[in-house]
């Protein structure tokens, strides 16, 4: 086991967690507005998958994308400033929590109509193939997406044209407040990839190493053969759908059971068992990312608001 890698994955997941806890606090204080969809509990999926990608591989994600953005860019300040609607934010305060972008780092959103970005990810992969470049596109979405027509059309075209895209379904068991068994005719989303046709793998999305390994295999295959691949990551959202959702549709027992799989705890234990770090050292690491989140909050609060006279900019190129 690569000790440095494990510690880095731990640090990244902890940063996502502390970042979102800070964001939630700011939200309850009324400093952040709009929708705030927390990723807490699912960190291993974004961190594990994106750690397996080359920096030149493209990332396309949903409105629950803080962790994906952080895993790709590491820029907590730009992310928090965007949540605060500041000019220094990732999207200059025009996007907000749901629309984070970093063109230079190939982080392509931040899309907030369920399923709408799936064909777009196929299109990015289409461009790589058209230009005979070796980059692969990673496309993240939730289980709820798998009932949208755009999901099926995107997969159908990726399969038909053999596009180098890895679809990663984050199955967190709920499409907003409705459990999977009431919204889907199959228990595993991944079987839907079979018809396009697409190889798939179902993984424990709460194990960052399993997530990383599965993604690495998928990326390698997509790069080598220019074939799409489908990963279903079983995971759980510890919080409600958004800050507006107290998640009363789930039993305390159910949430408790999943929280025992907390990806940060799981990796922390493994690190200690392997003797890579002790509890105190992990606490120090955690303090570091807490400070980074606090710094991001301070940066956001001190950043200027976007200038009203700029409101008409960027409607057209």
């Amino acid at each position: 086991m690569d000790a440095g890698l494990l510690l880095d994955l731990y640090r990244q997941m902890a940063l996502c967690r502390r970042f979102e806890e800070a964001a939630a606090k700011a939200y309850t204080q009324g400093k952040i507005r709009g929708f705030l969809h927390l990723y807490i509990g699912q960190e291993a999926v974004a961190v594990g998958a994106i750690s397996a990608a080359e920096p030149t591989d493209y990332i396309v994600a949903t409105y629950r994308e803080h962790a994906h953005y952080l895993a790709r860019t590491g820029d907590a300040r730009a992310a928090m400033a965007e949540l605060y609607g500041r000019a220094t934010g990732a999207s200059g305060g025009r996007g907000g929590s749901m629309h984070l972008f970093d063109a230079g780092k190939r982080f392509l959103g931040g899309w907030a109509i369920v399923g709408g970005h799936v064909p777009i990810a196929a299109g990015v992969a289409f461009a790589s193939k058209y230009r005979e470049e070796k980059d692969v596109t990673l496309c993240f979405f939730g289980d709820g997406t798998a009932n949208m027509g755009s999901f099926h059309e995107g997969l159908a075209l990726a399969g038909l044209w053999k596009l180098p895209v890895v679809f990663i379904c984050e199955n967190n068991q709920y499409a907003m407040g409705t459990p999977l068994y009431r919204t889907m005719s199959v228990p595993d989303v991944a079987v839907r990839a079979r018809g396009y046709p697409m190889e798939f793998e179902i993984v424990n999305g709460d194990d960052v190493l399993e997530m990383r390994d599965a993604t690495r295999r998928a990326l390698e295959r997509a790069r080598r053969t220019s074939q799409p691949f489908f990963i279903e990551a079983k995971t759980y959202r510890f919080r409600g759908h958004s800050m507006a959702d107290p998640a009363k549709y789930r039993s305390r027992e159910e949430v408790q059971k999943w929280m025992e799989r907390d990806p940060i705890q799981v990796l922390g234990q493994r690190i200690q068992t392997l003797g890579i770090a002790n509890a105190e050292q992990l606490r120090a690491l955690d303090d570091e990312v807490k400070a980074q989140a606090a710094d991001a909050v301070e940066f956001a609060e001190q950043s200027p608001l976007p200038a009203p006279e700029s409101v008409g900019e960027h409607v057209y190129a």
Binding site: Y58, P119, A122, G123, V124, A125, A127, R131, L157
Partner: peptide, 17 residues
Amino acid sequence: AETGFAGVGIGAAMVGL
């Protein structure tokens, strides 16, 4: 599949085609 190929076009345009 209008949603599909319109979206593919948008994705391709986003990265420079």
